[in-house]
Amino acid sequence: MAEVTGTTWTVYDANTLTQAEIYGQVLCDLGTIYPKIVGLSADLAKSTKIGLFGDKFPERFFNVGIAEQNMFGIAAGLAKSGLIPFVSTMAAFTTMRSAEQVRTDICYQKLNVKIIATHAGTSFGAAGTTHHCTEDIAITRSFANMTVIVPADGIETANAVKACVDYPGPVYIRIGRGFEPPFYKDENYGFKIGKACEVCPGTDITLICCGITVLQAAEAAKILQREDGLSVRVLNMHTIKPIDEGAILKAVKETRRIITFEDHNIHGGLGSAVADVIAASGKGCAFEKVGIPDCYAEVGYPEDLYSHYKLDTNGIIEKVRQVMGKEFEEDESWEDEV
């Protein structure tokens, strides 16, 4: 296989288990504890790893073929009958193909369906636009009753999958394709749905991240400390909805500069969720959203795309230096301009 190159890591650095593989194993364990868990996939049992659950509990697993809308409808019915369906296909076919089933059949009825969507963002970069999904956070965030979680790595995926079982209502957990390097060493760092994790303390600027950008920002923070003497706070905002307003407001107050980083369109995702909180607070703050800049992403291996869209360590450093160089508080001519 051709070596996959990128500026900050290669696939060979990644742990032996992907986010999806960890998910599959955790779900197998949960299946033993919770007899009400059932699984569904749409000819992607192998790729999404929910197939591990299917192998262990064949009578509680339904592969519906390539028919995603049908799958989410069936999941709604199973949930209405009292079961807890875990549903897995790619993010694109979950949130776009089946958007209405997820919204009306599942979210509107507040059904206990747990969706673990794989290949999100540009993690399946070489597959092109039909398989990229840089819209899913925006879409799921706009569905009332939905909880939206973007784990930083495989370990956090394990935490999120475990936590969602007893968390009432529909939950959307967004993971990648499998090359994501691990960030956390173990599961004991206090994961709680709706509560951001401060992964680096800092007072000059706050980087609010989710998914693959958490590790990259933490690396960037170390380098910026060393080379620029900057104290960079990094927040792992794994839950996009309900968002941790307290952590955002604290960052506004204490660092006055915020940048968000996400493998998603800059519209409607993490950045927008954070911006909503800042705007509503009425407090001033230098702010920038970094992500896919409202375009359909290029084709390429994810490493190259993350580098191109400034979501890797180097890109994050560059963005921080730009925002640190911006004058914003002293801008007194602002009133004349409006």
Binding site: A127, T129, T130, H131, V299, G300
Partner: peptide, 24 residues
């Protein structure tokens, strides 16, 4: 490869001769 017109699913906006982008 990076920025290639050829992804796994051929893109009608990028590849000559392809009438429609498919893949889903």
């Amino acid at each position: 490869h990076f920025k290639s017109p050829f992804g796994m699913h051929l893109d009608g906006n990028k590849v000559k001769g392809v009438d429609v982008s498919t893949g889903s």
